[in-house]
Design a protein around this nucleic acid. Structure first.
Lengths: 249, 249
DNA sequence: CTCTAGCAGCTTGTATGGTAGTATGAAAGC
DNA sequence: GCTTTCATACTACCATACAAGCTGCTAGAG
């Protein structure tokens, strides 16, 4: 693990550990003592400790005083909660985009979708995920609301962990790109209802994969159920669109 | 400044400083060095530092490396951004309450409103603000979404600072209580549109007081304007309801 | 053999020392 | 008098040392 000595150390450790947890290089349950991390990064305990505190606030690790710090299991419940908040914020962002987003910002979003198509064609999953994140950040920037992206980004770690588990199989890139296009088209048409619907569809995709993954890899998930507000949506989703893949391909 | 020696120190320092900043006991621009805070609380610099980092993440102080840490001015822009996110989340919470909130939770909310009336009658502004916070937390608890409250609470500090500045005059307690009653009534009627509208009205109150306060106490505010998404709402609000006070009293 | 008490070996939490960088102000040169 | 330079005092940041607490093993008593 290497890091830039000129820049502040704690944020760098935080970023790298966060990445490692999201990508499942650090598995749930693994202990992460301050001392280990310090030696791992060649720093003192102090920056390592500050990074762990931030990870705990993001819900990625659990600090048990005088006992240890451990990578948390993926919590079905936490993912559901974060997803709820994210849908609320991003729907509001999309609606507001319909009202006040300047044309240049929308053009930039269009450009991002084009690059997503290239990444999908090249099979570049990593690049695609980066562009996907850029698209959602771009929506918040289009209405000049930095806080909206900050909140979404904070919770995204929980959802991204699920996403990396389900990478090759579920939610093919082409489908997600179509959903991005639907969102942008609705915004361009200044149709707030359509933008709301398109964003909701996009952000509820994860509810389809989540229960299946939890059953498939129980050692990575805690055993809490979906919160009621998410279970409500999942049931409706399941009833409403029987063959999702077939309808889009 | 006193604190419990048995409990972890850093969170206590954070809570007390946060309170002091919100209540304008610590004014914008005031330097808060690690050493000063440490001696002030009789602790070492370490917990003080961790508290300051958390305050910086909440947007209440600004840490300038190797220069100092200072209480931030109230940012009209930050308040607008936080308000946007809060409206998005709490509207979604209220809508979902219409669908799945259990009756007992709604009864608890009714009880909170009753206690708010008592506090208003007694002129207990401090108690009222505590109950107001409990009401909004209660909505999130009614749909069992802890994350929703966490996000709202995080941003609330920014808005509460404005609220404390405008305490006696603007937004009389009776008006806010009526708005709470409107929200709860809409939820009881399972009317999602009415609940949405009531919550939006409630959370847009601050947009009326904010520009006036910024002009009145310029030394406490930075000079950034309202973000576009908020200015859009403020203008509509101003045009739609000319004499707010008169219509309600 | 079972159970309990105590002792290492961990952990996080706290305190303190040292370092690099910045602002301030005084003194020297133009 | 004005500008530039340098010394000083301050800061946050990092490293290290100490203290308090929990876990788990081990040894000894019943």
């Amino acid at each position: 693990m290497k890091l830039d000595e000129k820049a502040p150390i704690a944020p760098q450790i935080y970023a790298q550990l966060r990445e490692a947890i999201i990508r499942m290089r650090l598995l749930p349950g693994q202990p992460l003592s301050e001392k280990d991390i310090a030696t791992m990064f060649g720093s003192s305990r102090q920056p390592a400790r500050e990074a762990l505190i931030k990870l705990a606030e993001a819900g990625l690790v659990r600090i048990l005083p005088q006992r240890g710090t451990f990578v948390m299991k993926v919590s079905t419940r936490a993912v559901g909660d974060v997803r709820f908040v994210r849908e609320a914020v991003e729907v509001a962002v999309a609606r507001t985009c319909c009202r006040i987003a300047p044309g240049e910002a929308l053009d930039r979003l269009h450009g991002l979708i084009e690059r997503q198509k290239q990444a999908a064609a090249a099979g570049d999953q990593d690049g695609f995920l980066t562009l996907d994140e850029a698209f959602h950040r771009g929506l918040a920037e289009a209405i000049d609301c930095a806080e909206a992206w900050r909140v979404v980004e904070n919770g995204k770690a929980q959802m991204d962990r699920v996403r990396y588990l389900s990478l090759p199989e579920a939610s093919p890139m082409t489908l997600l790109i179509e959903q991005h296009e639907d969102i942008l088209a609705a915004i361009r048409a200044k149709d707030e209802e359509a933008a709301t619907a398109a964003m909701r569809v996009h952000l509820r995709e994860i509810l389809l994969a989540l229960p299946r993954l939890a059953a498939q890899r129980p050692e990575l998930f805690d055993d809490e159920p979906l919160p009621a507000h998410a279970e409500d949506l999942r049931a409706a989703q399941h009833a409403g669109t029987p063959p999702r893949i077939i309808t889009r391909t």
